[in-house]
Design a protein around this nucleic acid. Sequence first.
DNA 1: TAATTTCCGACAACGTGTTGTATACTGCAA
DNA 2: TTGCAGTATACAACACGTTGTCGGAAATTA
Lengths: 187, 187
Amino acid sequence: MKKQPHLTAQTKQNLIEAFWALYCEQRIEKITVKDITTKAGYNRGTFYEYFTDVYAVLEEIENALIPELDELPPVSLPTGNLGMPIDAFLALYAQNEKYYSVLLGDKGDPAFASKLKNAIKPSLMRVLSEKPGMNLTELDYIIEYTLSSMIGIMSYWFKQPEPLPGDELFKLIHRLMEQGVMKQLSV
Amino acid sequence: MKKQPHLTAQTKQNLIEAFWALYCEQRIEKITVKDITTKAGYNRGTFYEYFTDVYAVLEEIENALIPELDELPPVSLPTGNLGMPIDAFLALYAQNEKYYSVLLGDKGDPAFASKLKNAIKPSLMRVLSEKPGMNLTELDYIIEYTLSSMIGIMSYWFKQPEPLPGDELFKLIHRLMEQGVMKQLSV
DNA sequence: TAATTTCCGACAACGTGTTGTATACTGCAA
DNA sequence: TTGCAGTATACAACACGTTGTCGGAAATTA
């Protein structure tokens, strides 16, 4: 007899969605298996047919949100110059806004930011290291610096009650990356 | 009869230190009250004389690490120009390295970065908003952008097995802030 | 010695992960 | 099409560990 992929996939999805609804409101340590199954309408034991524990649900969600290599933002600018593909980052973030803003927020998972950075970093490294005379160690720090600021400002953006229009944010980030922050601040 | 402040302060400190030793190795949700008291050499019940739960210990540690207004880095540069006091940030981080690198790391507390930013932000806002024609909303985003990158790169720095020398990192950050990242990358 | 603080042992309630069981579905043979 | 066997799916009950809260014992001070 075959499995019933429809049914089980649905059950799993129901559990995931119940988990996510709870995770949006509270820290993961406060979420019990009972909370999840009650919300999803199952027996507590059923949960263990699909996940080993509460953290496994989070991990599954996170892994689905780590961009695959082929979905990664293109790293070459239209001009042919190298640089950071800001618009691609914005698009990636906006596409998964609902999840990213929670996972990267104050009640989220501190490891997720690292996962995200580590998924994006290699392809950036590969392309940007082509610049003649580029110091690889330094490049590594520059990328880390940039991804941190991108993730930071995007999370902040989504957290605002009245966010800046998207194109203004884009222009601002562009200016900061092209000219540096100091130029925007000093007299 | 008087309290015995020495004794109780010592007990509390012992509990805090036992907690921290555990927290450095594992996520907070895996730490039980029993683990802490066993490590510190007390009965489990004693813990509740000092803290309401495991999270209260972390909160106490965090609050001691949030810089007070008067310890905050000075915001005016030696030149008299406005800008980000990079060296003061580096000093602040280095001073509390042991705790910051754990709290801001992958097993740390995602809310701590926000706490830190929010503690630093007001004084930066106050000084930097003096620049004539400065847009406050924009300034807010710029500061968020900058603090994110600072925290990100510092955490990364401390995580490296063979970190860049401090002065080199300082020079790099300075260059990135003065000239922007793009200039460092594009051909 | 008396008063009070500090610490401890025991308790009920709750959450966890596992195991054995009932129900419902599927494929196949008649 | 119908009935049956086999299996997937969901459930109820179990033992165990953790939590937070008691009342009481030991230690300290005046």
